[in-house]
């Protein structure tokens, strides 16, 4: 584990330097407070979450055929690229997915959840996109979507309204 050792040493060293500088100036370095602030940013929190979704999407490229042992096709570049473009639009709009998973229909499924309100979008290997909104109980409202990206956000707006309604 040499990496962890290096990380710990570099953290301690930088703190010592700051403490030393403050000692010269007769101050106490409030380093614990500055470190705590790193946790308080929603920008960083959301960015990290979206980075994790992009990573998850990349991981799906190595999924084998028949990954569910019930003949499901693995997601193709058509579905993956469409999902990637949609993720960028979600990030711009601040619509946070709950989960990204392979679809048993062949493609990628993105699900959303806020309280009792739920939604999902499926990006199929054929290029088709289907979106749905529903609640814990009740029938889903399902519709076809032409594209979801920076220029085509209507489906995301509709999902956002449903989730926050």
């Amino acid at each position: 584990m040499p990496f962890l050792c290096t990380a710990a040493l570099s953290i301690d060293l930088s703190r010592n330097l700051v403490q030393q500088k403050y000692a010269e100036l007769n101050y106490t370095a409030p380093d614990s407070f500055s470190a705590a602030l790193a946790d308080r940013s929603d920008y960083w929190t959301r960015k990290n979450q979206f980075d994790a979704f992009h990573k998850r999407l990349s991981d799906l490229t190595s999924l084998p055929e028949n990954w569910d042992a019930e003949d499901a096709a693995r997601p193709t570049s058509v579905a993956l690229d469409a999902t990637r473009n949609a993720l960028l639009a979600m990030q711009e709009l601040g619509v946070m997915p709950e989960r990204i998973s392979p679809s048993v229909e062949g493609g990628v499924a993105v699900s959303f959840l806020r309280g009792r309100n739920r939604a999902f979008i499926e990006f199929y290997n054929s290029g088709e996109i289907v979106a749905a909104t529903y609640e814990d109980e009740g029938e889903p409202v399902v519709w076809e979507v032409e594209a979801i990206d920076a220029m085509n956000r209507a489906a995301l707006d509709r999902i956002h309204v449903h989730l926050t309604g």
Partner: peptide, 19 residues
């Protein structure tokens, strides 16, 4: 991390490349 003597505080400037 820059000391801010006038307010007895600090200014932390983080510059980072992101995706």
């Amino acid at each position: 991390i820059f000391p801010q003597i006038a307010i007895n505080g600090v200014l932390v400037l983080t510059q980072a490349s992101v995706s």
